[in-house]
């Protein structure tokens, strides 16, 4: 795997939250996190609840700001530091390179399941007819009944919404994928589909960082582990 390019390089990343309206209490999360992920690897984040796994994932996406450190993502052959990039640069990196798969779908009024899944393909310039076909194939693979495809997912069950979200994320896997609990409310059959999708994305060269509560899923997808507890920051006075 060492001949594959580094897609993610995390250098000396620390995070703490300061709650200004609650006595300016400062909550340290982790300190001096360093790692890199190459194309074709799945790095699984481990550590107890509250250790900062989700915070780290959000920092990699540019959704949370690190308190210090660099987060470099390979985009168009160049390393871009997400921690200091302009908003428009981060959005461009997200559009073509960096994907986030959460367990929750942000439902937008009136937008159908099929359109939600098609959206990233259209944003990358695919022909609408082909985008529709691929989106439908992905929803079918995740066993979402066809009668639901043209409906807005607001009324769907949690598991159905989650599958729409997964379909959207894997219909055209990004070179770098961040995955937060993708199988949380799925049955065994659909969980297996997600494991397959992750393996396929990896074999196509995606670099993946993920959090998986389900132990069997974790064992099946991981190529490496990172225990975030090793970077615990000492609680200190504000």
């Amino acid at each position: 795997m060492s001949d594959q390019p580094e897609m993610i390089r995390v250098e000396a990343v620390s995070k703490s939250f300061t709650l200004h309206n609650q006595g300016s209490v400062r909550l340290p999360v982790f300190r001096d996190v360093n790692f890199s992920v190459r194309a074709g690897e799945v790095l699984v984040l481990a550590g107890a609840s509250g250790a900062g796994k989700s915070s780290l994932l959000r920092i990699l996406y540019g959704n949370y700001l690190p308190s210090s450190g660099r987060i470099e993502i390979r985009h168009d052959g160049e390393m871009v530091d997400i921690a200091s990039a302009l908003p428009r640069t981060i959005l461009e990196v997200r559009r073509r390179t960096l994907g986030f798969v959460s367990q929750f779908l942000r439902v937008i009024p009136r937008v159908s399941a099929l359109d939600i899944v098609r959206d990233p393909l259209l944003a990358r310039g695919l022909d609408p007819a082909e985008a529709t076909e691929r989106a439908g194939a992905m929803l079918a693979r995740l066993n979402l009944p066809e009668r639901l495809w043209t409906l807005a997912p607001a009324t769907f069950s949690g598991g159905e919404q989650q599958r729409v979200n997964i379909a959207r994320s894997f219909v055209d896997p990004s070179p770098v994928m961040l995955i937060d609990e993708p199988t949380a409310s799925l049955d065994a059959r659909n969980r297996d589909v997600v494991v397959e999708l992750i393996a396929e994305a990896r074999s196509h060269g995606s670099a993946i960082v993920g959090i998986f509560h389900d132990e069997t899923v974790r064992e099946r997808v991981a190529t490496r582990w990172l225990d975030i507890t090793n970077f615990r920051a000492a609680a200190d006075a504000a």
Binding site: R88, L91, E92, R106, P120
Partner: peptide
């Protein structure tokens, strides 16, 4: 987070 990433902010 935003579910839909805007395609508009072109860096070019």
């Amino acid at each position: 987070m935003n579910a839909l990433v805007s395609p508009n902010a072109l860096t070019g």
